[in-house]
Design a protein around this nucleic acid. Structure first.
Lengths: 145, 145
DNA sequence: TTATTTTACATCGTACACGATATAGTTTAT
DNA sequence: ATAAACTATATCGTGTACGATGTAAAATAA
């Protein structure tokens, strides 16, 4: 444990597994709504603020156009999103929630909560974990330059 | 912040971003070796213990055969791994490191360390973060049942 | 021993995720 | 005003990642 390399390896792997575990848990919870975890993140963004440009959603989620575009297209095909060319900038497209997406916000939120709060883990450590993860992400982002 | 749902959403997203950040950082570091992050995890596993069955590697990394098989096949094609049918169980295959994989262990480890330790973040918070993440993963795994 | 079940690996279909490249529209510089 | 640089989106190729299904071998049950 005194080897910083080994510790770091384990940290990246632990994060990797946590992400995978979250993704699978959310996938199972969202499956009745025919939504994937990534699609749910897009909805979360738009429930917070509707009518965003594709690039705005990309910035919020940290996703490039090559990832986001197929996700958005599938969500349009499945009746979750609308897409409309911006008047001000003809290169840009405004993404908005459909009626269905607005209606399903509360049911989906309930499904997530009932899954996640089935154990009392989060009340104990979530705040520390969040703080440390945000610090970690700040560190990793800084390392990019 | 008093809403457990919102907190949880942020936690899953923070983990998601951390995983993505780690993956990209490692990808850039491993690129000169023509290795992906997942392939590196396979090497880590085998550097720890050589001559494992495919299922053993899958258990260590938490990956199913549908994910692992293509990774292993690419690594064989790129000269990192050997694959040999087991004598004891003809269904099973023993995966072993090639000379190249054994030779490159130290250079790859050095490349990773020189990237990761370029900031002193990890010396401060990594232990707490690891502990909390392991607890989180235990919680998420428990939630599967 | 034979039938059933389980196991180890293989393959397929869907869906991210990323970097690279392309294109049309916008802004900036001259 | 025109060229050059930049920006927003689109598309492509490669590589995970997962669940479902298939197959042969092994273990178990009858």
């Amino acid at each position: 444990m005194n080897n910083p390399s080994k510790l770091e390896q384990q940290l990246c792997f632990e994060v990797y597994k946590a992400s995978s575990n979250f993704s699978k848990l959310y996938a199972r919870t969202l499956e009745p709504f025919h939504l994937t975890f990534s699609q749910y993140l897009v909805l979360l963004t738009l429930w917070e603020q509707n009518n965003l440009l594709v690039k705005d959603i990309g910035n919020q989620l940290g996703l490039g156009i090559g990832t986001l575009n197929p996700i958005i297209n599938r969500m349009i095909a499945n009746g979750w999103l609308n897409k409309e060319q911006s008047d001000k900038d003809k290169r840009a497209f405004v993404i908005s929630l459909t009626e269905k997406a607005l209606e399903q916000e509360k049911p989906i939120e309930r499904a997530i909560i009932s899954k996640i709060t089935s154990c009392n883990y989060l009340d104990i450590n979530a705040k520390t974990l969040m703080t440390n993860l945000k610090e970690l992400n700040a560190f990793l982002n800084q390392l990019k330059e």
